[in-house]
Amino acid sequence: MVLKVKVDRERCQGHARCNALAPELFALDAFGNAHEIGDGRVPAGLEDKAFLAKANCPELAVEVIEGEGS
């Protein structure tokens, strides 16, 4: 199974929690708003960090999607 993270950019308000907790998965733009790094695929070993970021985003803007590998 493959995990992917995704930031809903309409909801994101730049609290930067995701980037603080999982800098391997989330980056911030020049205004401090977040996006997932690359295609959002979560490398093995970083699954907990993906869920931690989701659990700490006050705007409910972080999604963790469980999908089939490709």
Partner: peptide, 20 residues
Amino acid sequence: RAENRHAAFGLGIHRCIGSN
């Protein structure tokens, strides 16, 4: 506390600019 979506810096468009 591991799960903490606190709102100390506000919610929505007026999110505190000084939060970082």
